[in-house]
């Protein structure tokens, strides 16, 4: 899992879904959802744009393990 959204902190502002360069984040029922986690570039744009600190990054076992 790359970008991970904390549902408790997301206020549904949509900025991450609006700007994500890989079309990975979408809005579902008013909340931002990482819909295509395998297609994340780990660019960090969503985290920079999130005013509520709702986004963190988790690196996949393959990235950390090799």
């Amino acid at each position: 899992m790359p970008a991970v959204i904390d549902k408790g902190k997301c206020n549904g502002c949509e900025l991450c879904a609006l700007y994500c360069p890989l079309d990975v984040i979408h809005m579902e029922e008013g909340m931002a959802v990482v819909k295509y986690p395998d297609e994340c570039w780990h660019c960090g744009a969503c985290r920079q744009d999130c005013a509520h600190g709702a986004i963190t990054f988790q690196f996949s076992p393959a990235m950390l393990g090799v």
Binding site: L18, Y19, C20, P21, D23, W41, C43, G44
Partner: peptide, 13 residues
């Protein structure tokens, strides 16, 4: 294809 705010090679910096 994406959004000009964050598209291209320098999206994150």
């Amino acid at each position: 294809k994406a959004h000009i705010q964050r598209s291209g090679a320098i999206a994150g910096g």
